[in-house]
Simulated assay, not measured.
Amino acid sequence: MNFDFISNTDSKASISDIPTFQVQQIWQQLDDERVDVSHLIDRTYGYHSERELRWHLADRFSRPVRSLSLSRM
C-alpha cells in the first residue's frame, strides 16, 4: 500500500518537547487513482516520526508494516 501525505508541525509543542507533526491530509494510491483516507486516522495526533505513522497505518489497515510506503508531499 502506498500513501502520500501532507503534514504540519505541532505549533503547541514547547522547546523542551520532542518535535512532532500532524497529518493534515493523507491519500492512498490505488493503481492510477489517489483516494483520500484522511477521515480514517486521528489528524490531531502528534506523530514523532514517519515510522510511527507507518505503524499506525499498518494497524488501521490490518497490513504488515513492510507492505506500506509513505511519501511526504
Rank of each mutant, 00 (worst) to 15 (best):
N8Y: 11
D32K: 12
E50Q: 10
P19R: 09
E33A: 05
K12L: 12
T44F: 00
I15T: 13
F5C: 06
R54V: 03
S71R: 15
L40R: 14
L30R: 15
I6S: 12
M73D: 15
T20K: 03
T20P: 01
Q24A: 15
S7P: 04
N2H: 08
G46L: 00
R43E: 06
I26C: 05
D31P: 02
E52L: 04
V23Q: 03
L40N: 10
D17V: 05
D42N: 10
D10N: 13
L57M: 07
R34K: 14
S11Q: 13
K12E: 13
E52V: 03
R54C: 02
S67K: 08
R43M: 05
D59I: 06
Q29P: 09
V37H: 04
L30V: 13
S67G: 09
D36F: 07
L40D: 09
Q25E: 12
S62F: 04
L70C: 03
N2P: 04
D4I: 11
Q25F: 07
R34D: 14
M1P: 09
S67V: 05
T20S: 07
I18C: 03
R54P: 00
S16Y: 11
Y47P: 02
I15C: 12
Y47I: 01
L70D: 07
I15P: 10
S69A: 11
R51N: 12
E33H: 11
H48Y: 08
R34L: 14
Q25S: 14
F61Q: 10
E33K: 12
D17M: 06
E52C: 02
E50D: 07
S16R: 09
F21G: 03
R51V: 09
P19H: 05
Q22I: 02
I6M: 10
Q24I: 14
Y45D: 01
W27P: 08
S16K: 11
A13Y: 02
V23R: 01
L53Q: 00
E33Y: 08
D32E: 14
D36C: 12
L68G: 04
E52T: 01
P64S: 13
D17N: 08
N8R: 13
N8I: 15
P64K: 05
I41V: 04
A58I: 06
N8G: 14
R34H: 13
V23G: 05
Y47C: 00
L68A: 05
I18H: 07
L57Y: 04
N8K: 14
P64L: 10
T20C: 02
M73Q: 15
F5D: 08
